[in-house]
Every structure is written in structure tokens, then in C-alpha cells.
């Protein structure tokens, strides 16, 4: 891969301590983001997408630990002091969240959020400049200047998300992580937000990591896609290519589960996402995988590259010599019954 990547993640691991043991929410993820590109991260609920997104900002919840490295322009975020990391958040690394209704301080006017942000990162800025820059960014998001001094509760959900995006963009960060930015919004607003995010990467060279469970959004707005399963990235590649010819059975099943007008009968992947405290051995997907082989239950899959820029971690594509004799025989397992699924 080229080294023009603005953000490069190597073997990122994030785990939460619980009474039962560590929850490995992100387990050995490698990613790279180049300026101006949009990378979609998809996967089921609880597969570690949101934790990954926060990890990229070095923003870990209470009780979480991280390993591996997240290099922003070559500097490992985990080696930075708390202060240096904090100073990157905002001007270089931005984040927008899932539920815009609760993301603004309810006691503060919109203007106060901008004032705090700009004063924090640009100590010498004048009040006039703050106003000018904030209003310009808000206008780009379609928020009229007359609403600048309103309180958060005076806006709709879609407007609040646009305000959050404006707060994320006012400092022109190099990387923006958007964690399911449209999940709680209706479809029209969703389309609007997605268009705004698409414009942004064209006009400002911002690298966008778009976390979503909506494959339609990925198809429409993303250049590349990373499919996550149980804390692992199982497949990455050009969004169109991956969708046209998914290499990993999980990606294929996920795409088949998408609802469209031509859908007749819902397809779903039997079973539930695995327990991340005690995940299945070897390939995490093998208990639910329709193509599982003997080797899948015994050894971790090797990441291979069937096409340039396309990477997949699955024994179906794995080096034949490593599969071993008889390793490709279908995996015999007990049927997942209804009680197990529940």
C-alpha cells in the first residue's frame, strides 16, 4: 500500500474488562485511509464498529484498553501524551455520532458550542472570526445564520446532526469518523446527510470513515468498504467490487440479507453474532458459515489478496498448501436449533 495514507491502523485491539473476562471488541484490525477517500465500515450490531471508530480518535470508554497502533501522519496516537492527543481531536481528527439529539449540551446555545471549540484550538481567534467561520460552516450545512443563537432543543434531529457535522468540520480535520450518522434519522434526512458527507470529501480532501449497517449507504457513498465480524475485518476492498463479487461468505450473506423491492422472503444469517468474551476458535464466523470447512474450525484464516486492493480473511481463498489434506472437507456440525438462536 502507498504511504500517502493519512491514517494507518495496525493490529488495533480494544478490549473492555468485564466480570466474565475481557470483551475483545476490536481484535487485530488493519486499516488505511488516504485523503479524500471514504471508507465504509459495515457489520452487524456489536461487531466492534463503533469501538473501532472511537479507537481511531484514541477515544476509549471508561474501563477500555487498547493495543496495536493508530498512526496519524506517522505518529502513533497511543504514544502521544493525553494533551497532544486531545489537541489533535478537533483540528485533525473529527467525529460525529449516532444520536444527534443528545450530542449537544442542552444548556448551551449552538453559538456557545462553536465558541468553545474554536477558542480551545485557536486561542488567538477573535469573536468576529469565530462568528464568521461558524456561520460559514453552518451555512454549508444548510443552517441559516438566524438560528445561530438558538438552543439545541429548538432544532429537529436532522438539523442537529447537521450542526454536529458543522462542529466536526469547522476546523477542517484531515480525518472524520462518522458513527452511524443517519441511523436515528428518517430516509429523506438520511439522503441529505449522506450527500453533505459526500460533498465534503470532494471539496476538502477529508478522509471519511463511515460506520454504518446500511449497505445501501456504502454502495452510494463509499469508495472502499471494510466488513467487520466479531472484532475482525474479514474483507476490505473497492466498494463496487466487493459488492459485485463478495469474497467472504459473511459479506455474501450480509448482502443477501439486504431488503429491496425485489426481495421475496427475508434472508438472514442463522445464529447470532458471537460472544466476544469467549469467541469461537479459529475463524470467528465458522459456526454460522454455510461454506465452513474442517480447517475453519481449527486454524485462524490467513488474509489473502485475490485482486489488487482487495483483501479477505477466509480459508476459501486461503493458500491451498496451508489448508492441508482433508482440511477442505465440509465441516460437520450440529444443527443450530431455535433454542440456541434465542
Amino acid at each position: 500500500m502507498t504511504d500517502e495514507a493519512v491514517l494507518r491502523v495496525r493490529d488495533l485491539r480494544v478490549w473492555y474488562g468485564t466480570e466474565r473476562g475481557p470483551v475483545r471488541a476490536v481484535d487485530g484490525v488493519d486499516l488505511a485511509l488516504v485523503p479524500g477517500e471514504t471508507l465504509g465500515v459495515v457489520g452487524e450490531s456489536g461487531c466492534g464498529k463503533s469501538t473501532l471508530g472511537r479507537g481511531l480518535l484514541g477515544l476509549l470508554p471508561e474501563g477500555a484498553k487498547a493495543g496495536g497502533e493508530v498512526r496519524f501522519r506517522g505518529t502513533d496516537l497511543f504514544e502521544l501524551s493525553g494533551r497532544a492527543l486531545r489537541e489533535l481531536r478537533g483540528p485533525e481528527l473529527g467525529m460525529i455520532f449516532q444520536d444527534p439529539l443528545t450530542r449537544l449540551n442542552p444548556l448551551w446555545r449552538v453559538s456557545e458550542h462553536f465558541e468553545e471549540l474554536l477558542r480551545t484550538h485557536c486561542p488567538d481567534i477573535s469573536a468576529e472570526q469565530i462568528r464568521h467561520r461558524s456561520l460559514a460552516t453552518l451555512r454549508r450545512m444548510g443552517i441559516p445564520p438566524t438560528r445561530y443563537r438558538n438552543y439545541p432543543h429548538e432544532f429537529s434531529g436532522g438539523m442537529r446532526q447537521r450542526i454536529m457535522i458543522a462542529l466536526g468540520l469547522v476546523l477542517n480535520p484531515a480525518v472524520l469518523v462518522a458513527d452511524e450518522p443517519t441511523t436515528s434519522l428518517d430516509v429523506l434526512v438520511e439522503a441529505q446527510i449522506i450527500r453533505l458527507l459526500a460533498d465534503l470529501r470532494r471539496n476538502f480532501d477529508t478522509a471519511l470513515l463511515l460506520i454504518t449497517h446500511n449497505l445501501g449507504i456504502v454502495a452510494e457513498a463509499c469508495d472502499r468498504v471494510a466488513v467487520m465480524y466479531a472484532g475482525h475485518v474479514v474483507e476490505t476492498g473497492d466498494a463496487r467490487e466487493v459488492f459485485a463479487a463478495p469474497a467472504h461468505p459473511y459479506t455474501r450473506e450480509l448482502l443477501r440479507s439486504t431488503i429491496s423491492l425485489s426481495t421475496t422472503g427475508l434472508h438472514y444469517i442463522p445464529g447470532a453474532p458471537p460472544d466476544l468474551v469467549d469467541p469461537p476458535p479459529a475463524c470467528r464466523f465458522h459456526p454460522r458459515c454455510p461454506d465452513a470447512m474442517q480447517v475453519c474450525a481449527t486454524r485462524d484464516p490467513v488474509t489473502v489478496s485475490p485482486r489488487p486492493g482487495h483483501r479477505v480473511a477466509c480459508w476459501l481463498h486461503g493458500p491451498a498448501e496451508q489448508v492441508g489434506a482433508g482440511g477442505d472437507a465440509p465441516l460437520v456440525r450440529e444443527e443450530i436449533d431455535v433454542a440456541d438462536e434465542a
Binding site: 477515544l59 455520532f97 449540551n105 471549540l117 466536526g168
Partner: peptide, 8 residues
Amino acid sequence: EAARARGI
């Protein structure tokens, strides 16, 4: 959390 993500 959002304020932390903005580097406050």
C-alpha cells in the same frame, strides 16, 4: 463524549 471528541 462529543465534547471530548472535539478535543475540549
